[in-house]
Amino acid sequence: MEMTRLTFVTAMFILLCYSPIHGQGKYKNRSQQRQSQFWIGLKGGANLTKANPETRYSIFDRLSGETDQSAMKNYDNYGSLNANFGVVFTYDSPFGLAVSFQPTVQNYTFSYGYEFDWVDDTNTGNTMILNYQHDHFFRYMELPLFLRYQFPLGSSNVKGSTGGVAGKREFIPYIQGGFYYSRLIDAFKTITTSGTDNVTGNQANIQTSEESFGVKNQIMDGSIGWIAGIGAAYDIGNIRVSAEINYKSGINNIASSQNRYSNSNTAMGYYDVFDDFTLQHVEFNLNLLFPLKFITNDSFNAL
């Protein structure tokens, strides 16, 4: 389901990027097009997260009823938005390739839920259901390194070469890919318990309760993954604004096997332990970039 959603968003974005440049001719002067530049800037945006379980672990072991409780966590994929902020260091080469390093603080949220039910076999109207909703908040310091290819555009898109920023164009679509290393800053979860108590045959809701616990010990300190994305930049005066959408996929399991059962609050109170899992993200970013090299005359040749 989320794959379909992702494909649709990606397709729409590609269309959006390419529609204004259809049918435009080849640019005349490559040297005006392609000059090097250093950029420094800020980025910010929003992300959606999916937790992808590998080996499942559970404390509850059902001897009757629905016995397969090991797969009982229902993950809510890409279910809630969170934000990311960072700084950008980009080097634009004269050949359309750019390298970008973007230390970012990433806030991720993902959740899962599970339900336990009990029934009175002498009177099946008497039931008891408990629902546990686990909302997780993870904060990472992420260090991604991108390699970016910026598509060449027609001359009509190139501004005059007198003054301003080297290689300045109005609209630059790009694709990018790379790897990231991220380090966990904080992790906690909020567990919401609710339920229905039909013990006397009359329905009574169990008082909803909410508790939060730090779970940093249960999560590995580091994570690595790969990134692929598309974007487009637009120059306003000397400032470059770009918008991009990235898909990020974690490579290593981030649940600690050493500390899986060591959080007595969550493990012994809520029968909850993390599965082995990786994280996947779709994120949207707006970047605001400032050039570090200004040229004052036409004969200036940047690196």
């Binding site: 072991d61 009757s64 009823g65 629905e66 009990w118 029934v119 076999d121």
Partner: peptide, 8 residues
Amino acid sequence: VYDVNNFN
């Protein structure tokens, strides 16, 4: 925790 989903 070994559970049975039966009250009894």
